[in-house]
Design a protein around this nucleic acid. Structure first.
Lengths: 237, 237
DNA sequence: GAGACTCGTATTTTCGAAAATACTATCCGT
DNA sequence: ACGGATAGTATTTTCGAAAATACGAGTCTC
């Protein structure tokens, strides 16, 4: 059931949040992060209105929220557009991520309890399961994306700072957008499964220095690959 | 002139931004940071509508932006309120600030050029001038607030990362709100002038380790004083 | 009397029309 | 032909009414 719904009448308008604005924010974020709405794309209200079925002001609220997250660029009196990409921005996001993530993994390793260990292990397990299904193009699989995000989220979730977790989440989204940007041009994914496994083991065995080193390499290598395979998209403008 | 304007007709509606929404965002931010709107205060649209002279949707846009900055708490379907304060939040903001600010001061010292040095020296100079006027209650003087903000901004401005500067700015606002919270209960200000002077000298002489240590102490001491003198306001809820 | 329900009120949330602003093509003078 | 003003169009921004939702007082049942 649910498969044959007449939709427009029954299908709930709000899937991800209680308010339509929150829902639109969520859906827009996904489309921007996945580059379904490409960087620099103008976000005209007529078009959005049709695509998302919401009114001017509701869309405006969603765009304002995403502008604060750095995914949308608000040009006063001249509308919104998807935040452009650049080498400089990629470097900034990468550096900031390393700074924050290193701090968080240290704290999580220091403070994590049994539940944390279980979350790390189980999210990694699910990630590996999904990877076995389609080892070639993990980024195209929405389930892999979610599982990947949840594994990294679980790793740092025990850090004890909602503030830093919020900052981390924003940077993660911005970085994921760059990964999607280069996904189509990358010849074959490297051995991410092995890297994740190693990070998990370092974390669970409370080897903070090793975990920090692995995470740093993980982030920087990914960014290097983006620069390598999507470089032509970063200089465009 | 400007003193005798009939205002409602001539006075520009948009002071700080080109759009009314951006203007309201700015004004609301100031009122929240200065605790003119106290922590936890419900933000009802009727009241805001009267106070700021804007419509529902414009206010909503401003509140959404401030929610993303952590100054406003959005409770879906139940409106907005000024973000509450707590010991936990104070600790989180302080720790995050130290982490970011330390990184930025290192980078700025490494990369800062002549213009940077001039900006640091001149913003400190102005700050000291203003302090001489009213050495007792600097936080009550809006000009001191601005000058203080600009000095700290100048210190890190040469870091080279707009992303990290944006994060820093948000944390600075959240910290400043706590300072205002305790300002009324603090017996007398400590020797901030001397601290700022020392930080400036360490920065200009490119002594990164010393600057980092001074900044860290500066931030943590301030936070400790907030906890000491406004503690009764942090446990309330 | 305590808990659950209903209805009326207060408040938030959403909408599309109307105003304000930016963009584009055309016209005019040099 | 070229630069600059101008009118017309496209787009964003703002508004207040209308719909949706939450809150609270009073009522009913057990």
């Amino acid at each position: 059931m649910g498969r044959t719904m007449p939709d427009s009448a029954i299908r709930p308008r709000k899937e991800f949040g209680k308010t339509i604005a929150a829902d639109i924010t969520h859906r827009l974020r996904e489309e921007i992060v996945s580059c379904s709405l490409p960087p620099g794309e103008p976000l005209r209200f007529d078009v959005l209105r049709e695509r998302f079925g919401a009114s001017f002001t509701t869309l405006r609220e969603a765009l304002t929220a995403l502008a604060a997250e750095g995914l949308v660029d608000a040009q006063e009196q001249r509308g919104f557009r998807v935040a452009p990409v650049s080498r400089q921005d990629l470097v900034e996001v990468t550096d900031a991520r390393v700074l924050i993530e290193v701090e968080l993994i240290r704290r999580a390793i220091e403070r994590g309890d049994d539940d944390w260990e279980i979350a790390v292990i189980s999210t990694l397990h699910r990630l590996k399961r999904i990877e076995q299904r389609d080892p070639e193009h993990p980024l195209r699989d929405p389930e892999w994306k979610i599982a990947h995000r949840q594994f990294h989220q679980a790793l740092v979730s025990a850090c004890g700072s909602a503030t830093l977790l919020g900052i981390r989440a924003e940077l993660f989204d911005r970085a994921e957008r760059y990964r999607h940007l280069s996904a189509n041009f990358r010849p074959r994914p490297r051995d991410k499964a092995g890297e994740h496994q190693a990070i998990m083991q370092a974390a669970i065995s409370r080897n903070a220095d090793l975990a920090v080193q692995l995470i740093t390499t993980h982030i920087r290598t990914t960014a290097d690959n983006v620069a390598k395979y999507a470089g032509h998209l970063l200089d465009a403008e």
